[in-house]
C-alpha cells in the first residue's frame, strides 16, 4: 500500500477532503518527530506507543585497526505494539 493509496483510504474513512487529509498526515509526522526529539512517548490507543530513546555518546575501538572513534549521541525511535493479532 503506497502513500497515495493510504491517503485515499483515510479520506474515504474520515470523510475529509483529500488535501486536508494530506495536510493532517504531514502534521502528524512532524508532531511525532517533535515529540520524539523531546523523548515524549505518544500512545495511539489500540495500535501502540511510539517511544523515543536517547543514547549518549560513546567511544568505540575497532579491534582490527585499533582506531578509536567517538560517536555522537543519537535518538532511536521505536514502536511498542498494543494490537491484538
Amino acid at each position: 500500500m503506497t502513500h497515495k493509496e493510504f491517503i485515499s483510504e483515510v479520506q474515504k474513512v474520515s470523510g475529509l477532503d483529500k488535501q486536508v487529509c494530506a495536510t493532517l498526515l504531514s502534521a502528524t509526522v512532524k508532531l511525532l518527530a517533535e515529540e520524539g526529539t523531546e523523548q515524549i512517548p505518544v500512545e495511539f490507543e489500540g495500535l501502540g506507543t511510539f517511544v523515543a530513546t536517547k543514547h549518549p555518546e560513546y567511544i568505540e575501538e575497532n579491534p582490527e585497526t585499533h582506531v578509536v572513534t567517538l560517536y555522537p549521541p543519537r535518538i532511536s525511535y521505536r514502536f511498542q505494539s498494543q494490537m491484538e493479532l
Binding site: 483515510v10 487529509c21 493532517l24 498526515l25 495511539f44 490507543e45
Partner: peptide
C-alpha cells in the same frame, strides 16, 4: 477533523 483523521488513520492501519 483532527479526531476523525486520527480515527481513520488508526482504523486503516
Amino acid at each position: 477533523d483532527a479526531s476523525a483523521f486520527v480515527h481513520a488513520l488508526l482504523q486503516t492501519v
